[in-house]
């Protein structure tokens, strides 16, 4: 296997007495959609914050294209081609949709006219073409999620970190946004998506890591992971795999 685009190597993060992430390792292969799932409180968001530079790990290394990026500030990561979205959407509320995307577009396009053109293009790509002049705070939840995506895309990343972009959407909306994500991958952007909702990530990802209580407990294709005894127990509680019997047990 060639060198992964991103590799997280035995990363731990401690908050006082709580070990939120415990020697977790994972890799993101170039050109693929990688999923990171896990039950509530598993440490997904903390691990995500470490990868995106918002949180310093207590221990371990994060590598991107072979270079150590542990502890680099988020803006530096964005410059190197790593973009993230936020689980709780963080629009620039006082600005229009176009101006929101423009902030990201300016990273690669110092000139305003070029940046505006790039912003419009990205807006269209994620399905916000008709809403570009709307105030960002008038968007629906689904619109805001698209805006999060658009802003991150406008920085022209090679690696896109998606923090629960599907959470809070209804099945129809998920059905609408999923092809957009798939298209981005086809365009050559590697994606690491964290999801709490298993079903959505299973249909999109090619490779999945499962985090529970701070540790990576399983990895593999979506089908392999879904059949894993430890994963079923992590989600449904101890003994669940046994009760479900042979159907899931291994």
């Amino acid at each position: 296997m060639t060198e992964p685009l991103l590799s997280v190597e035995r990363v731990s993060c401690r908050f006082g007495g709580l070990l939120a992430v415990n020697a977790a390792s994972l890799t993101v292969a170039a050109g693929r959609i990688t999923g990171l799932i896990g039950p509530n409180g598993a440490g997904k968001t903390t691990l995500f914050a470490i990868i995106s530079g918002f949180q310093r790990p207590s221990d371990g290394i994060v590598r991107y294209r072979g270079e150590t990026i542990t502890g680099l500030p988020p803006y530096e990561l964005a410059r190197r081609g790593i973009a993230r979205t936020f689980q709780i959407v963080q629009p620039f509320a006082g600005l229009s949709v176009r101006e929101n995307i423009l902030v990201g577009a300016h990273l690669r396009h110092p000139k305003r006219s070029n940046a505006l053109a790039a912003a419009d293009l990205v807006g269209r790509e994620v399905g916000l073409a008709d809403l570009l002049d709307r105030a960002a705070d008038t968007l629906t939840v689904s619109g805001r999620k698209r805006l999060e995506l658009a802003r991150a895309l406008a920085t022209e990343p090679q690696l896109l970190l998606l923090d629960e972009v599907l959470a809070g959407l209804n099945p129809t909306e998920i059905h609408e946004i999923a092809p957009t994500i798939r298209r981005l991958c086809e365009r050559g952007i590697s994606i690491l998506m964290i999801e709490h909702v298993m079903q959505a990530v299973m249909s999109l990802s090619q490779h999945v890591f499962v985090l529970a209580e701070g540790c990576i407990i399983a990895e593999g294709t979506p089908a392999e992971v879904a059949a894993d005894r430890a994963v079923v127990e992590a989600y449904l509680g101890h003994g669940a795999a046994k009760k479900l019997g042979g159907a899931h047990g291994r």
Partner: peptide
């Protein structure tokens, strides 16, 4: 660009950082 970034920082500093 400088002004756009400055306004972005006003509106939401964390989101601005994530965008470079």
């Amino acid at each position: 660009r400088f002004g756009t970034w400055l306004i972005a920082v006003r509106e939401n500093e964390d989101a601005a950082k994530a965008l470079g």
